[in-house]
Amino acid sequence: MLYVEARIRADLDVLWERTQDPARHQRWDLRFTEIAPLPSAPGAPQRFRYATRVLPFLTVAGTGVSAGERHRAGGERVSALRFSSPHPLSLLAEGSGYWRYVPTPDGIRFLTGYDYRPRWGRFGVLADRLVFRPLMGWATAWSFDRLRLWCERGISPARSLAYALAEAAVRTAAVLAGAAGVSAGLLPGAGGGGPVSEGGGPVAALCALALTAVALLVPPSPRTPAARRCLRTPPPRSAAPRLLATLEHPS
C-alpha cells in the first residue's frame, strides 16, 4: 500500500473542488496527462477515463469509477476509486484507493492510500518493486505538495512546475561544474594561486564534493514542490473507508 499525507492550510471546499473536478485534478497531478469524466447514471458513482503520456508517441490509458462523501462526522470528507488499464504496455493492471480530508486546527490532513496489481508476471513484480512503486510514491508526494502550493500560496501548477525545472537545472549545472573543475584541473591546488600544484588533485576533489553536496542537499525553494514535505508512512490502524467496498470494478 502506498501512503502519502500533506498538511494543507486552505478552505476545505477549495481543496475538494481542486481534487474532485477532473479538469482541475489533472493540472496538479504529475501521474496523469488527462482525466476526463465519462457518462454516468444520475446518483451513480462517476466514471472517468485517465491517460498518461509515457513517451511523446506513447500514451497509456485506462478507466475508473469514483464516489465521494462530503458530509461525515467531524467535518471529514472522503472519496474512493477503482481503476484499471487494458493497455498491454501499462505495468499497472488494476487497483483501488481513497482520499481523506480531515480538518484539524492546523489545516487539513489530505491523505491517500492506494494499491494496484502489476502485470507482466514475475518481471512486472520485480520492476514494480524496484522502480515503478518508488516512482509512483514520489510522484504522488510531489503532486500533493504542488497542490498545497496552489491552495495555500496561489502558485498555479504550471508556475510551480516551471520553478521546479529551473531549480533542477541550477542544481544539475552546479554538479556538472564541480565535475568539470576536477577533470580540467581548473580548481586551485593546495599550494595556492598560479598553476595547479601537485597537491591540487585532492583539494579539487574535496571542492567538487562540497559543491555537489550543496547542490543536492540545499532545501528546495518555498515556491518549488518537494516530495520530502509529505508524510510517507501510514499511521497505526489506518484503513480504507467503507465507501471503497461499494464500488464495482470499472468496465
Rank of each mutant, 00 (worst) to 15 (best):
S160V: 04
V170H: 01
R159A: 15
L187F: 15
G193F: 08
L186P: 00
L176A: 15
A166T: 11
G189V: 04
A190Y: 07
A179K: 06
P157E: 00
E152A: 13
A166V: 08
L176R: 04
R146V: 03
V182H: 06
P157M: 08
W150P: 02
R171A: 07
G191K: 05
R146P: 06
G191C: 13
D145T: 02
G178S: 06
G192Y: 09
C151Y: 08
E152K: 11
G189P: 07
S143M: 04
G189I: 08
G181P: 04
L165S: 03
L147A: 04
G189N: 02
G181F: 07
L176C: 14
L149S: 10
G194N: 12
S156R: 13
G192Q: 11
A169G: 13
L176T: 06
G194Y: 05
G189K: 00
G154I: 13
T172H: 07
L149R: 09
S156M: 10
L161M: 12
P188A: 07
A184P: 00
S143Q: 10
L165E: 07
V196C: 10
S156I: 12
V196S: 15
W142S: 05
R159P: 01
G181Q: 03
G181E: 01
P157N: 04
A158S: 12
A164D: 13
A166C: 08
T172V: 05
G192C: 09
G191F: 08
G154R: 12
C151S: 08
P188V: 03
A168Y: 05
G191Q: 14
A169Y: 01
